[in-house]
């Protein structure tokens, strides 16, 4: 564990929490893409199957359980409790365009042809593009509430910090995971345009439009 990894994980945790709190406090999930949230839940469900087979650390186990519960909790709030506020007309990104290529890629480019390993690879590839329905929704409606912007920023910062963590780990431990690094870079790049708008607009108190 290094500082980049820790802050990255905390940023991820923070992103999920502000999203849940936003929905809970405003009793509304307007502006949030349910499709991205389903993809994230699928990412966690396929990546954290090793909860049942391997123990890594208490930190690792607790974080995984938190991510799983909170992502399914978000889906429950969006599709059941505050269903009426879900902006489905603007949430129209075709997720099969992500799921199918990601499934094929994970079957071809993986560390080992093994069920757990392939599902892990699938989750890494899927995570890198899972935010696209949300970004698509923001571009379609032409704006995002500040809180949604903070959520996106924290979520993007998490993977960016992981890249610093991988550079650090490469020099200190010789650790290098090509699949995670490439997918992590793709994931971070997808947020770049948003980061720019966030810094130039949202931090100056303007709405993201």
């Amino acid at each position: 564990m290094n500082i980049f990894r820790l802050i990255g994980d905390l940023s991820h945790l923070f992103a999920i929490l502000i999203l849940l709190l936003k929905i809970w406090k405003t009793r509304s999930c307007a502006g949030i893409s349910g499709r991205s949230q389903i993809l994230f839940a699928l990412v966690f469900a396929t990546r954290y199957l090793d909860l049942f087979t391997h123990f890594i650390s208490l930190y690792n186990t607790l974080m995984k359980i938190f991510y799983l519960c909170s992502s399914f909790g978000t889906i429950y709030l969006m599709y059941v409790k505050f269903k009426a506020t879900y902006d489905r007309n603007h949430d129209t990104f075709r997720v099969e365009f992500l799921l199918i290529p990601v499934a094929i890629l994970s079957l071809i480019f993986n560390h080992e042809f093994d069920v757990l390993e392939i599902l892990w690879t699938f989750s890494i590839y899927l995570e890198s593009v899972a935010i696209l329905p949300q970004l698509f929704m923001v571009s379609k409606t032409g704006e995002a509430e500040s809180i949604t912007s903070h959520y996106l920023f924290a979520l993007g910062a998490y993977r960016g910090l992981y890249i610093l963590n991988w550079i650090y780990r490469y020099y200190t431990e010789g650790f290098f995971d090509l699949i995670a690094v490439i997918a992590g870079i793709v994931q971070t790049v997808l947020y770049c345009d948003f980061f720019y708008l966030y810094i130039t607009k949202v931090l100056k108190g303007k709405r993201l439009t």
Partner: peptide, 10 residues
């Protein structure tokens, strides 16, 4: 048989 590569990252 190769051992499963532990994933310590989230």
């Amino acid at each position: 048989e190769k051992q499963y590569q532990l994933k310590d990252e989230l």
